[in-house]
Design a protein around this nucleic acid. Structure first.
Length: 270
DNA sequence: AAATTCTCCTGAAGGC
DNA sequence: TGCCTTCAGGAGAATT
């Protein structure tokens, strides 16, 4: 389940292999992703030079001469660098074919996407209303405090709302709230500014740690198995329901918030 | 307007 | 080579 750190690692991993090259063609084996890959994708992008690969939230933006490809890994997507002679496997839905190598996309559940948008990319509906990047100064206590003001929804679902801040998925939302000592179910508008400041720092910390670990865990984007998995970092709450809190020893509680597994410590998180 | 629920999909895990 | 049900989740769409 690619979270922001996996997407970042993917961008950094593939960029050196393809930046500056001309995209010869897109080979589509199955266009049925979350949104269908446009039938005319080759007319839109083939023959153009790739200038840069940028992550925006969990979107992968590839800037070409006339616009950009907007990629998303969904739940189970991955991109890796392969050579022309490597035969595609089951669930390898498309290749971005450059002269020296291919970017091969695999996605068993097909929740990912590949779309084209002429410049400016931010005009695309999927990008137009995204909140700030969590690892930049644009995401700070002032912004989060304003976003929470008067809100009755749980703080956890708020920080997972990409209009408020991008890239905070379920795993790291759980982890950050634990780190900040905030009950995931607490109404967003009832978290003090001081504690929101802690939450901002916790989000930055947990994502930064995962990126750092991902840089070593997923160092190989060439001829790897294409399976990003997710980092075996020391998760404190996610996936640890009913196990002892690493701080107080009490059993962690699991509830569902917005259809998502939510694990927290009733005693350490208020 | 804000908050919640639904939806897509397949593989893994669990029950029997 | 067991079959069936349940669950997992990114995040936009639909609904309340």
């Amino acid at each position: 389940m690619p979270e922001l750190p996996e997407v970042e690692t993917t961008c950094v991993g593939i960029a050196p292999h393809i930046t500056g090259q001309i995209l010869q063609q897109v080979t589509v084996r199955d266009h049925r992703l979350r949104w269908p890959i446009p039938d005319d994708i080759n007319h839109l992008v083939a023959g153009q030079r790739l200038h840069k690969v940028v992550r925006r939230g969990k979107y992968i933006l590839m800037y070409f001469d006339l616009g950009g490809l907007i990629g998303h890994l969904g739940m189970t997507g991955s991109m890796r660098i392969v050579t022309q002679d490597e035969p595609p496997a089951y669930h390898d839905h498309f290749d971005l074919c450059f002269s020296a190598c291919l970017v091969r996309y695999r996605d068993p559940r097909r929740f990912g996407s590949l779309l084209w948008q002429p410049f400016p990319l931010e005009d695309h509906a999927l990008l137009a209303n995204l909140g700030p990047e969590p690892l930049t100064e644009a995401f700070n206590v002032d912004v989060l405090h304003a976003a929470c003001k008067g809100k009755k929804q749980p703080i956890k679902t708020l920080i997972m709302d990409s209009k408020k801040v991008v890239g905070v998925g379920n795993i790291y939302a759980n982890e950050a709230l634990y780190m900040a000592g905030i009950n995931p179910n607490r109404q967003a508008g009832r978290v003090s500014r001081q504690r929101l400041a802690k939450l901002v720092e916790a989000i930055k910390q947990v994502l930064t740690d995962a990126i750092t670990q991902g840089g070593t865990t997923l160092r190989n984007f060439v001829d790897s198995d294409g399976n990003p998995g997710y980092f075996k970092q020391q998760l404190r709450v996610y996936g640890r329901a009913h196990k002892p809190c690493r701080s107080c020893g009490e059993a962690l509680k699991e509830v569902r918030l917005g259809q998502r597994s939510t694990v927290y410590c009733r005693y350490c998180q208020r």
